Simulated assay, not measured.
Amino acid sequence: MAWAGENFLLGMSAAFNGPSKGLGVELYRGSMAYFAFLNESGGINGHHVNIVPLDDGYQPDPAIENTIKFLEDDDILCLFNYVGTPTVTRILPLLKGYKGHQKLLFFPFTGAEPQRQQPYRSYVFNLRASYVDELDGLVNRFLDSGRTRIAVFYQADAYGRSGWDGTRKALAARNRFLAGEATYRRGARFEDSMKRQVDILLRSKPDVVLSIGSYAACAAFIRDARDMGLDVPIANVSFVGSENLLVLLEKVGAKSGRDYTKNLVNTQIVPSYEDLSLPAVREYREYMDRYAPSPPPLTVESYLPLKYSFTSFEGFLNAKAMARILASYEEVPTSGIRWAAEFIRNADLGINAPVNFSPGNHQGLDKVYFTTVRDGKFVPLDEGLWQSWRK
């Protein structure tokens, strides 16, 4: 049994520094809020659960190095909360076996397809909906609103291409095609110009732009798009990190006197953390307030933690689901953690969406939520706004 003393140790490789650090930090903080409560309450039959974080800066090579360290460390039970498609896709071959070491990956923060398909899907458990689910929902809602000229702005790597492909397939199912596309390089900062990408898309005369990128780059694109007169709805998928995106847009808006948050749509794969009717939301807010989890010590760059966010709420739910699996594993450790996970049935995380896994199904949830900005926060998108975009 992979315990270090009395603890379950989970290995997390993510961006804790660099332009995408907000994603790794907030996912970690949300999970630690739940684990702090769990450990304070006695853990799992006396065994505490802790995350061992390593920084990969949202870059594949460090993610590979971190994964090898986790695989070779017998105290690490499994991999958990990895962040990003370009990193996760590169470490998938290691999960099949590295010098006799083999471990499972639980709940990566990516909706890409490779870990949901053979030959890797048996080594990964996904809690979140896929990018295919998110983009299919966006494409169909916008097409139903009469906006048929859909363009994409995306990161030029496995993550962006996954979203680009998902958009194309969703359009093809409705006998439509991309109106235009523009890319940017991973690692772009908010200070970088996206005017060239905006100019490319302006020529395609889109009715809507779907963005598949990180929050710094997408915020830069939105800023330049609005400044250059591209005023159509712009939609981002959940990976973008809604609150981190909003901080940047409000900051530049305060300087220019312009509202850059108008006509934005962000898909989410968890409910709104403002929905206090949900038990998990009440728990999440209580534990985030009570424990105020800090960024991991290896976050050396300046970062102001968010009070609440969709990303940290996802981390919180990941931790709740992981605790259910660990409790089953602890009861019959000789059966292995895969067995414990594959026999989770109707697990109630408190969001009115039960989680189920089985040997043939490693996808726990598939619901997609649509949000927009109102009064300085992302809130559920109502039917009236969809109707206002009708052409």
Rank of each mutant, 00 (worst) to 15 (best):
M1W: 08
L9F: 07
L10W: 02
M12I: 07
A15W: 09
L23N: 13
V25Q: 11
S31M: 12
I44C: 09
G46K: 09
G46Q: 07
H47L: 03
V49G: 01
N50H: 15
Y58G: 03
Q59A: 14
P62V: 11
E65T: 14
T87C: 15
T87K: 02
T89G: 07
T89M: 05
L94M: 06
Q102W: 04
F107S: 09
F107P: 02
E113V: 05
Q118R: 14
S122L: 05
A129W: 00
Y131W: 15
L135P: 00
L138Q: 09
L138E: 04
N140Q: 14
R141M: 11
F142M: 13
T148N: 12
V152D: 09
V152M: 15
Y154G: 06
A156C: 02
A158N: 14
Y159R: 04
G160C: 03
G166A: 13
G166L: 12
K169S: 14
A170Q: 04
A173W: 01
A182T: 01
A182E: 01
T183N: 08
R189E: 14
F190Q: 06
D192Q: 10
V198I: 10
D199C: 00
I200F: 09
L201V: 05
L202T: 04
K205F: 04
P206W: 02
I212H: 14
I212E: 10
G213Q: 02
S214M: 09
A216D: 07
F221Y: 12
I222T: 07
I222F: 00
M228Y: 12
D231V: 05
V232S: 06
V232K: 10
A235R: 04
N236G: 06
V237Q: 14
V247M: 14
E250S: 01
R258D: 06
L264I: 15
N266D: 11
T267V: 05
Q268R: 13
E274F: 15
D275E: 15
L276G: 01
L278G: 11
P279L: 09
E283Y: 06
E283F: 05
A292I: 02
L298G: 03
L304W: 07
K307P: 00
S309M: 10
F310C: 06
F310T: 14
F313C: 09
E314F: 10
F316N: 04
L317Q: 03
A319R: 05
I325K: 08
A327E: 15
E331C: 04
S335F: 09
E342Q: 15
N346H: 12
N352H: 12
V355R: 10
F357H: 08
F357G: 11
S358D: 11
H362A: 11
H362G: 12
G364C: 07
K367N: 08
F370D: 08
T372L: 00
R374D: 12
R374E: 15
F378D: 02
G384K: 14
K391P: 00
